[in-house]
Amino acid sequence: MSAQLPDYALVLAGILFGMGLLGVLMRRNIIYILISVEVMLNAAGLAFIAAGSRLAQADGQVMFIFILTLAAAEASVGLALIIQFYRAYRTLDSDAAKDMRG
């Protein structure tokens, strides 16, 4: 039974990824979009860990570390942009930034 944990974990990763995607598409507030993106990254990391556990290799955790790094950099840059966005548009509604529509 415990041998199947990685598979269940993968399914869980899929579920969490789907929920993160739902959050990204559903919310208008940029902060929430960012949060949902973090959820998705987390889910991806879980998938890697599960794969590494299944194969009994360290690569899964290594990938997870990289994902973590990436998430950190992306979160900080994203938040900086959110601050500028707020200063420019006075709102956190992502639909406010549609100047580039064609």
Binding site: Q4, P6, D7, S53, L55, A56, Q57, A58, Q61, V62
Partner: peptide, 19 residues
């Protein structure tokens, strides 16, 4: 896919070596 057979703990040492 068919379920795997092994399940073991991958410790920090291994991760460090890989890194």
């Amino acid at each position: 896919r068919a379920p795997a057979a092994r399940n073991s703990i991958v410790g920090p040492t291994e991760v460090g070596v890989a890194l």
